[in-house]
Amino acid sequence: MNEANLRAYNFNAGPSALPLEVLEKAQSELTNFRGTGMSIMEMSHRSAIFEEIHNGAISRMRKLFSIPDQYEVLFLQGGASLQFSMIPMNFLQVGQQAGYIMTGSWSEKAFKESKLFGEPYEVVSTKENKYRNIPALEDIQINEDDAFIHLTSNNTIYGTQWSAFPDTGDIPLIADMSSDIMSKPVDINKFGMIYAGAQKNLGPSGVTVVIVRKDLLEKANMDIPTILKYSTHADNNSLYNTPPTFGIYMLGEVLNWMEAKGGLEAIAKNNEEKAKVIYDAIDHSNGFYTGHATPESRSLMNITFRVADETLEKLFLTEAEEAGFVGLNGHRSVGGCRASTYNAVPLEACQALGDFMVQFQKKHS
């Protein structure tokens, strides 16, 4: 626990830590936003004030993430899980193939949904290696008539992350970036579409960011429900139906915070420093802690590891919770431990965890 402000050391995988400065500003504006006598949650999404908030968030995202003009920026709902269905609904014709690169549970779920709308195939999978690594770029072989290629940029459950992305040529590359979006600079031009839930790096749960190339929208299927067409939301500036207004307000404030921190270059450098502290505690433990991911595929967002034996692992998690660390349990499907070090997790929290890990090892070795 950080005694200075009584904030927990929050390593939750999502919803996850938000910047304290953003929370404090939201608190100060919660009941009377800009002298209106109303909360932002009470205002019409058609009001001039919300329009300014909404468009400001889009503008800041474009600037920070270097999003070219040929891409739409949409704020949707339903999380990444709805995108698993919307993507093939919009971009996959019956009988047409799409390639899925399998690196974990979320890739599997996206692949499963795509089967309902076409003929997806597995481009390559690391499942036999228990999803410990990201595929080598030379192992990615695609078909020239694929509708798209889909990948998950960071895998929260297994703690792996792409450090470089494949060149798919004229085939649109679609990436689920839910757990590492805007944690570092990315060349948007490599992608036909990027999507992400906001609840890890960008704000609270309830907002889904979609960055999609405009020419893909022109070729998309039209014989699907109106609200499930990306073109519907692009044509209406994401205001076809009532959007998650408070979530978009918070997202905009998080983007302001990121800009004040120096933008994505500075955010990326800080994320590398934070992750190194915890990985060093693992690597210097002489096997007391064991990382799940292979070193070349390690995530800077989700650090997954096991403790020497099951009894000690349970004790580690118990004592960590007593010491003020929250969210260190691994995903229920794999167990173990996981520290999620998203953008808003401060370096101080990672240093505290690294120190705790070292002391726990000394105590129990």
Results as ranks from 00 to 15, higher is better:
residue 314 K to D: 12
residue 227 I to W: 04
residue 226 T to S: 10
residue 324 G to W: 04
residue 234 A to Q: 08
residue 34 R to V: 05
residue 121 Y to P: 10
residue 213 R to D: 06
residue 77 Q to S: 10
residue 95 G to S: 12
residue 193 M to D: 06
residue 184 K to L: 04
residue 48 A to F: 07
residue 12 N to G: 00
residue 255 L to Y: 12
residue 97 Q to N: 07
residue 170 D to V: 13
residue 52 E to C: 09
residue 266 A to H: 09
residue 8 A to D: 11
residue 15 P to S: 07
residue 251 L to G: 09
residue 331 H to F: 08
residue 272 E to T: 09
residue 236 N to L: 13
residue 30 L to K: 15
residue 236 N to G: 12
residue 105 S to A: 11
residue 39 S to P: 13
residue 251 L to Y: 15
residue 45 H to E: 15
residue 303 I to R: 11
residue 59 S to A: 13
residue 42 E to R: 10
residue 14 G to D: 09
residue 82 L to H: 05
residue 117 F to G: 00
residue 235 D to G: 06
residue 240 Y to H: 15
residue 22 V to A: 11
residue 175 A to Y: 08
residue 54 H to Y: 03
residue 87 I to D: 01
residue 296 E to A: 14
residue 170 D to E: 14
residue 222 M to V: 00
residue 215 D to Y: 04
residue 26 A to E: 08
residue 153 S to L: 08
residue 151 L to C: 04
residue 164 A to C: 13
residue 334 V to F: 07
residue 335 G to S: 14
residue 284 H to Q: 14
residue 325 F to M: 01
residue 167 D to P: 01
residue 121 Y to N: 05
residue 226 T to N: 09
residue 42 E to I: 02
residue 177 M to Q: 09
residue 80 A to V: 00
residue 214 K to A: 10
residue 12 N to E: 00
residue 250 M to R: 01
residue 172 P to F: 06
residue 299 S to W: 09
residue 344 A to T: 11
residue 180 D to N: 15
residue 8 A to R: 01
residue 172 P to V: 07
residue 256 N to F: 06
residue 299 S to F: 09
residue 9 Y to H: 08
residue 99 G to Q: 08
residue 155 N to Y: 04
residue 89 M to A: 01
residue 172 P to T: 06
residue 303 I to P: 12
residue 236 N to Q: 14
residue 46 R to H: 15
residue 253 E to P: 03
residue 126 T to F: 05
residue 152 T to E: 10
residue 76 L to D: 04
residue 58 I to G: 05
residue 127 K to G: 06
residue 257 W to Y: 07
residue 80 A to K: 05
residue 212 V to C: 05
residue 95 G to C: 08
residue 353 L to M: 06
residue 318 T to W: 05
residue 292 H to S: 11
residue 178 S to D: 04
residue 115 K to A: 06
residue 88 P to E: 03
residue 133 N to Y: 01
residue 54 H to G: 00
residue 5 N to R: 13
residue 310 E to F: 15
residue 299 S to P: 02
residue 337 C to D: 03
residue 72 E to P: 02
residue 190 K to M: 08
residue 141 Q to A: 00
residue 233 H to N: 07
residue 40 I to N: 05
residue 137 L to G: 05
residue 342 Y to V: 06
residue 48 A to E: 15
residue 105 S to L: 08
residue 177 M to F: 05
residue 261 K to V: 01
residue 234 A to I: 03
residue 42 E to S: 10
residue 261 K to I: 01
residue 209 V to Q: 01
residue 6 L to M: 14
residue 331 H to V: 12
residue 7 R to N: 10
residue 343 N to W: 03
